[in-house]
């Protein structure tokens, strides 16, 4: 059962990681325009950040 000493912190850590990721998506307003974001991946425009230089 000594393996629990490792496993429990690991499982708690993973859960915490998921929570932090969820809070980040919430904070960075990623649920603001879900349909627009779904469509924007089809667009050639680089509108969230500057287009990288060619080449």
């Amino acid at each position: 059962m000594e393996v629990l000493i490792i496993l429990i912190p690991v499982s708690l850590g993973l859960g915490g990681l998921g929570l932090v990721a969820f809070l980040w998506t919430l904070r960075s307003r990623q649920y603001e325009d879900p349909r627009g974001d779904a469509e924007r991946i089809l667009s050639d425009e680089w509108d969230d950040r500057p287009k990288p230089p060619p080449g």
Binding site: L12, G15, L19, F22, L23, L26
Partner: peptide, 16 residues
């Protein structure tokens, strides 16, 4: 967003 955040926190806590 406030309710969503609380759902997220309680959801992850529930799983653990």
């Amino acid at each position: 967003r406030d309710i969503l955040m609380r759902i997220g926190v309680s959801g992850f806590a529930m799983m653990n």
